[in-house]
């Protein structure tokens, strides 16, 4: 029964996975560009960010249509309303990857970025985003709860970045501008982690009906 509705929910999941994959791609691109000092990366990340924006609009339209046509209740209502909230977080992730790409352009190809554990942060945030979408699709509360803990690791990386950058500026004040740019990069990664955490919280709500505050 309701096989048509179930089909549409599957399509919604598929689009959520696609949007999540775009977010991962954007984060991966900026992580790689930081490693290779690719100042042109913005040109590649920008279109992905636009695609993410479009996906948000598409998924939003699909959810509104499902709400209107199917008048979902209980777990169906939670799944759709969670999707509506999650796409906002994913859209922000796309924007922040774009912001990082923009900053990479200012860094002028200087290779001093091992002062901040950006690669570790990028890896950890990609993992969180992938897992939060997996948890949503598979209704996996245990995985979602594990993600909430992973955010602490990213927060710790951010604190570590701050300490190293302060030291860098103290040793040579000329590094000031560079250090601030890099601090922004670290901060954006930290924010991406927060958005992935939000997604995981909505997964938990979608399955259990209880919204956890981390």
């Amino acid at each position: 029964m309701r096989s048509r509705f179930d089909e549409q929910l599957m399509l919604l999941n598929k689009e959520m996975i696609e949007m999540g994959a775009l977010c991962e791609e954007a984060i991966e691109l900026v992580a790689k560009a930081l490693e290779t000092n690719n100042v042109e990366i913005y040109k590649k990340v920008r279109p992905i960010s636009l695609e993410i924006d479009q996906k948000e609009k598409d998924i939003e339209a699909r959810c509104m249509k499902l709400l209107l046509q199917q008048q979902p209740v209980a777990k169906d209502l939670r799944q759709i309303s969670a999707a509506l909230k999650m796409i906002t977080d994913m859209e922000r992730i796309g924007d922040q990857a774009e912001d990082i790409a923009e900053i990479i352009g200012y860094l002028n190809g200087e290779n001093r970025n091992n002062s901040v554990p950006v690669q570790e942060m990028a890896k950890a945030t990609i993992k969180m985003v992938t897992e939060s979408i997996d948890a949503y699709v598979n209704k996996d509360v245990a995985l979602a709860e594990a993600i909430l803990k992973e955010d602490d690791i990213i927060d710790e990386y951010f604190m570590e970045s701050k300490r190293r950058l302060i030291k860098m500026v103290a040793e040579n004040p000329e590094n000031g501008e560079y250090a601030l740019d890099l601090l922004m990069v670290a901060k954006y990664f930290e924010r991406i982690g927060d958005h992935a955490t939000n997604i995981a919280e909505w997964v938990i709500f979608s399955v259990t009906g209880v919204h956890e505050e981390a």
């Binding site: 309701r2 209980a74 777990k75 009906g209």
Partner: peptide, 19 residues
């Protein structure tokens, strides 16, 4: 009841997946 039904049978009925 319509957001977090306790019983699986309620959930199946209200979400239209009954029978």
């Amino acid at each position: 009841l319509f957001s977090q039904p306790m019983d699986k049978r309620t959930e199946d009925y209200i979400t239209g997946r009954f029978g």
